[in-house]
Simulated scan of single mutants.
Amino acid sequence: MEQFTSLTGVAAPLEITNIDTDMIIPKQYLKTIKRTGLGEGLFAEMRYQDDGSENPDFVLNKPAYRNAKILVAGDNFGCGSSREHAPWALLDFGIRCVISTSFADIFYNNCFKNGILPIVVSPENLAKLLDDAKRGANATVSVDLEAQDIRGPDGGIIHFDIDPFRKHCLLNGLDDIGLTLKKSSQIEIFEKKSGAERFWL
C-alpha cells in the first residue's frame, strides 16, 4: 500500500448528503476484482449522461477539478453496501483524501486499508473547506497527516483527530497484509515449532 504522509492538491466540492457506495461506483462495475481501471466508473451515474457523454455540470468533469486529489463531501459519506470497490475507484481516479462530517463505518475502515485518508471535521469546518474548494484550481488544500492538520489556500489551519494505530499504518503504507508480513520472522518460528510438535499434520 502506498504511504500517506502529506498531500497538496485541488479539493473538489461534492455537497451532497448520504452519498452511498452505489453512487460512488455503480453495481455494473463490480464484476472485476482488479483495483485498477475503476476510476472510469467513479460516480458514473452523475458523471455521464444517458448517451455516454460527460455531464458538464458534474464537479469532476469541470476543468478545475479533473485532477482533484481531495474530495470535500456532505454528511454520511460512503453509506450503503459494503463494497470495497468504492475506495478502489476513488484511488484509481486520484482521490487520496475524503473530508466530511461523518462516514459509514465499513467505508471508513476500507479507506484506511487502501491508502485513502478519511477525515472527520465539524460542520463549521466543512463549510469553510467547501468554500475553499469552490474557488477552483487556483485554491489548493494541504493535508499533513503527521501534524494532523488541513491548511487552506489562505493559510487557515484545521486540526483533525485520527486513531493512532490507523495513522501509523497510513504513514508507513501498511495494510493488513503488510502488518502480517512485519511479523514474518515470528510466524516462521511458530510454523517450525508447530511442525516439529505436530509432525502428523
Rank of each mutant, 00 (worst) to 15 (best):
W88T: 03
F160G: 00
I24A: 05
I16Q: 06
L7K: 15
F199Y: 13
P87R: 09
I24V: 14
A86H: 08
H168Q: 12
F43W: 10
L117Y: 01
P118Q: 10
C79W: 00
P118T: 10
F58M: 04
F160N: 01
S100G: 09
F190E: 08
I150F: 00
N67H: 11
A137V: 00
G178Q: 13
V72A: 11
I162L: 14
F107Y: 15
K167R: 14
P56N: 09
C169H: 12
L126R: 15
K31F: 09
M23H: 03
K27I: 08
K128P: 09
Q3N: 14
N76V: 03
L181S: 08
P153I: 05
S82G: 03
G39D: 01
T101W: 03
I19F: 05
G80R: 02
D51G: 14
D176A: 11
M23C: 04
A139H: 07
V121C: 12
P63K: 01
L42M: 03
G178N: 13
G136L: 06
D51S: 14
G115H: 12
G173C: 13
A127H: 06
D154N: 04
G78W: 06
T140V: 11
I106S: 02
F107W: 05
N125V: 10
V143G: 09
S6Q: 14
D50Y: 01
E146P: 03
L91P: 00
N109K: 07
E45K: 05
H159D: 12
A73N: 02
V121D: 07
A68N: 00
H168K: 12
S184I: 15
L130W: 02
D92Y: 06
L174T: 09
G173D: 15
P26L: 07
L145H: 12
F4C: 10
